[in-house]
């Protein structure tokens, strides 16, 4: 997607978010959960980058930092705003965040709890317009009608309440709301994981269509690798607060270079009984971000671990152009991906 003259819309450098663990009556700080620990990546205009990983890997925390729903502990989040200048979202004072928020919007996971049941579709979709004093009432009505058409809903539905709509339709409403202010970046946190399988495809197709039509940039947070494969240009795999592998989608799926990526791909149940896999079943559990193991965080579960993995923490290195891996053995291992 992003060849040659790509514009960097988002550039995240050394992002960290630590949460304190408080103990006892005086709530003294007893430790830290390193939810996001030195994460760097960029997203070009018009592309989709997916953050994938299992629960607790820090993918949602990363997304929330980018939207400044929470303030990062350290690092830079450089965002190219519409009028040109690049701003650091991480350090911007709260008062200056508001105009930026028009340019970054969010699509939520649960279409049942993310829409206020007491407000009509018009109220919900026009809320960002009202909050930012955009347009007169009539202009807002027109804009909402246009947005509803855009996401495949009938404008006549404007006066109805969310309860009258199915999960897939509600997710369309959530997307319409996110698009109301013409944002350049959409952060979608598990946008289809609460939907029925037959409806997931509709929403994924809609996201692809809107991206082509409006030149949107997506940062997608997801755990379902099949979903990720359908919509992403590039994928970053996270494990215990760090990116362990990042490259373009095709390469990640067919030729992974991190043992954790290989295990993740292998663990996905394939919808074909003839492929009953010689699955790689990872032993043990995801490491505790408050008390991570020494060396590479993945080494206790890694079938390829050697001594160096127990002692030294690997860095994210570019082992091939555009293929970043954080593994001591990335250059020597040949790992199994999934075919077409």
């Amino acid at each position: 997607m992003s060849l040659g003259t790509s514009v960097r819309l988002l550039d995240v450098k050394g992002l960290q978010k630590f949460f304190p663990i408080r103990k006892g009556f005086l709530k003294r700080e007893a430790g830290q959960v390193r939810a996001v620990d030195d994460v760097s990546f960029h997203v070009d205009k018009g592309e989709t980058l997916s953050l994938v990983g299992e629960s607790g890997c820090g993918k949602t925390t990363t997304a929330r930092c980018i939207l400044r729903a929470i303030t990062p502990t350290a690092g830079q989040i450089l965002f190219r705003s519409e009028d040109g200048p690049v701003v650091d979202v991480a350090s911007l004072p709260k008062s200056r965040l508001r105009p930026l928020r028009r340019q970054m919007q969010m699509i939520f996971q649960d279409p049942f709890s993310s829409l206020n049941p007491r407000r009509t579709l018009f109220d919900i979709v026009a809320e960002p317009l009202a909050a930012n004093d955009v347009g007169t009432r009539q202009e807002r009505v027109n804009r909402v009608a246009e947005l509803l058409r855009l996401v495949g809903l009938r404008p006549e539905y404007m006066r109805r309440y969310p309860h009258a709509f199915s999960g897939g339709q509600r997710q369309r409403i959530g997307i319409a709301r996110a698009l109301a202010l013409n944002p350049s970046l959409i952060v979608a946190d598990e946008p289809v994981s609460a939907l029925d399988v037959s409806v997931q495809a509709q929403i994924l197709n809609l996201m692809l269509k809107l991206q082509a039509q409006l030149g949107l940039t997506y940062l997608l947070v997801a755990h379902d690798l099949s979903v990720v494969k359908h919509v992403s240009d590039r994928v970053a795999v996270m494990y215990v607060g760090k990116i362990v592998e990042m490259t373009d989608t095709q390469r990640l799926f067919t030729a992974p270079k991190h043992p954790y990526t290989e295990a993740l791909l292998s663990a996905v149940p394939k919808p074909d009984p003839r492929l009953r896999a010689q699955r790689i079943v990872l032993e043990g559990e995801v490491a505790d971000a408050a008390n991570p193991p020494s060396g590479c965080y993945f080494h206790p579960r890694c079938r390829y671990a050697v001594d160096a993995c127990r002692q030294e923490t690997p860095r994210l290195e570019e082992v091939q152009p555009g293929h970043f891996v954080s593994c001591h053995r990335a250059r020597e291992l040949t790992l199994r991906g999934v075919g077409q």
Partner: peptide, 9 residues
Amino acid sequence: IPSIHATVR
């Protein structure tokens, strides 16, 4: 169903 074997995008 989205499949892990599908073509990208």
